[in-house]
Design a protein around this nucleic acid. Structure first.
Lengths: 206, 206
DNA sequence: CGATAGATTGAGAGTTTTCAACCGATGTGG
DNA sequence: CCACATCGGTTGAAAACTCTCAATCTATCG
């Protein structure tokens, strides 16, 4: 949607490539651009000094990222990292400003996007309080797998999205695999029946 | 700021009063209005079935609330509750739409507001992972007390903001009171030196 | 086929929460 | 103005859910 709106303006934008693990921008630095993904997958992470990482958001083809800091007018609060080979178009501050100027309908979309992301973030915040680790892990597995099924998500990534640890994810996956609610396939996995799995997630962990 | 922009349009808006504890809108219901606080204090809470509550945001004089759901186009994801005697102006959907239509500068402010709130929510999310309960409690005490110093914040409210429990808040407050970093005054408290208290919060809990 | 990143599993530790009992402040009606 | 009801706060002890640590195993890829 943004892509459709932005497309006419980005033909002359700068392109860059990243491979898995590459950092696109760092927490704390000042936003000079908005990024648009032509192809690939990017994760937004908060990296704590303790070494703990939190997987905040994921962006795929045709998504923009870096927009939050841009519109907030603050430095980046998190670090964006390529999760696979990724091609992005870089839209400069000046370009952004001029595009926004002439397109109020785009601002409406931007408001909507961030309103939704804010809702999700707050629901996750609340979920850490009242949901068990198992429930959160199942929800994160479903979320990530459904959003980007071709990606082989690591236990660590799922854990960082669920506010847990990779060991706990491994344990939950083994348990679900044994009960048939999930099928482990090497490092990847499949979800045969999302509804059933969601139902399981609601039970108190055993 | 919103208040200044909105003021000319809300002279004929509906006013309503609430007393402490009154629910203004419920999670799950459909947003019909945006609310503007003429005077008072409102908290946004997520109420889990387990009984656990999460204190998501606080709104004081001249703040708007209910805007996230309005702009997301979804039902409320949380419940707003008056924290003291509060007067609000109610701005209807239709009024909102027409105001937004004619005022792109207002949409820019709205984008900025939500971009900042999204950043805060995600930082809190990350903080639950890598900060101790004591650190979060101190941060929430400072945040709430500095934002609305006249309010007598309860241990429970602080706990629900810090993703902890009122017992833990009571214990931290007793400890800080004994070390002089905080002064308990009946149910209220004062912070003699915010910098010192912040420094304390960074230490690992003892 | 070796090297390396990722996954698994067990046992133990530990921060917080939970539960429960009690205390103290605040506010109201008689 | 006192007595009592209630709401909020305090404290201790025990429980518990997860995490941490460590060793081992298994994919995957050059």
């Amino acid at each position: 949607m943004f892509y459709q709106l932005l497309k006419p303006y980005i033909d002359d934008s700068i392109k860059r490539s990243f491979k898995r693990g590459d950092i696109i921008y760092h927490e704390g630095s000042s936003p000079q651009n908005i990024y648009l993904i032509d192809d690939g997958l990017v994760g937004l992470f908060h990296l704590a000094e303790s070494g703990k990482e939190t997987f905040l958001r994921v962006f795929g083809k045709d998504c923009i990222f870096g927009h939050r800091s841009f519109f907030a007018g603050t430095n980046y609060h998190a670090t964006s990292i390529a999760l696979k080979k990724t091609e992005v178009s870089i839209i400069s501050k000046a370009q952004c400003d001029s595009i926004c100027q002439g397109h109020p309908e785009l601002m409406k979309e931007m408001v909507k996007l961030m309103a939704n992301d804010l809702g999700s973030a707050e629901l996750r915040l609340a979920g850490i309080q009242d949901k068990t680790a198992k429930t959160r892990i199942i929800e994160s597995m479903i979320y990530l797998k459904h959003k980007y099924p071709e990606q082989v998500w690591t236990r660590k990534e799922i854990a960082e999205h669920a506010a847990s640890t990779m060991e706990s994810v491994a344990r939950v996956m083994t348990e679900l695999n044994d009960s048939g609610l999930l099928v482990k396939e090497g490092r990847d996995f499949e979800i045969p029946d999302t509804e059933k799995l969601l139902a399981e997630s609601i039970q108190k962990s055993s």
